[in-house]
Design a protein around this nucleic acid. Structure first.
Lengths: 109, 109
DNA sequence: AACATAATATATAAATATGTATAACGTTTG
DNA sequence: CAAACGTTATACATATTTATATATTATGTT
């Protein structure tokens, strides 16, 4: 039954990986994470940089927070978010090289 | 307007990246890709290995094909699929190291 | 303490996208 | 033509996204 056990384990790993990918697989969340690679930022800063409306922003941050991709640090009225793991950072580096390097750029205005 | 152009470009890159991630962000598709890292395979082989019903399988393969992650090669009645780009391979390697290495394994039966 | 304001979070509902099962449809080969 | 291998269409269920409204928490003022 080794093969069956392996299959189960593979399925579990694939399930975990796909959940991680789903948390990343959104334009706005990617942009937020991208901003956060430069260091922590509070919600209102992120709102200004990204142009996302505050409630939507808070919801996307909530997704990333619950999935453990970012971490909050509360200071007074403000909440500062930062990237929570090297896995996330590694993935962002990978994506950057695939989609944000010169070869990939398409000008159209 | 440099910042605005950059924002637009960032949004476009993020959109592309998120679309790529969405194609990956599914347990079954990940497992199929994982099998394909060992070399090309035809649909019925994939069906056997994955336990996914054939029409569902064909639809998932369709997603991967249309997004350019895999490539078909027809031979007689059979269609052999293979991984289409190094980007995909790189991403799978990354995911493997995150979710399929020893540290990540959790036994429970 | 009572109230106002600022920063962020949550709830809800409508719109859209994704997943999945079943049935029907093409192709290739014998 | 029939059998084998895949694909596409349809219908339905579920998940994700997005907007609007409302709640929470901290701070400042009187």
């Amino acid at each position: 039954m080794d093969a069956a056990i392996d299959l189960k384990q593979m399925q579990q790993s694939a399930e975990n990986a796909s959940q991680f990918l789903r948390s990343l697989a959104n334009r706005d969340r990617l942009m937020l994470l991208c901003h956060l690679t430069r260091g922590e930022a509070c919600v209102s800063e992120l709102e200004e940089q990204s142009g996302i409306h505050q409630p939507s922003l808070s919801q996307q941050l909530g997704v990333l927070r619950r999935e453990g991709l970012i971490e909050p640090r509360k200071q007074g009225k403000r909440v500062y978010y930062s990237i929570a793991s090297d896995n996330v950072r590694a993935m962002l580096v990978q994506l950057y090289s695939m989609f944000c390097s010169q070869e990939t750029v398409t000008e159209d205005d």
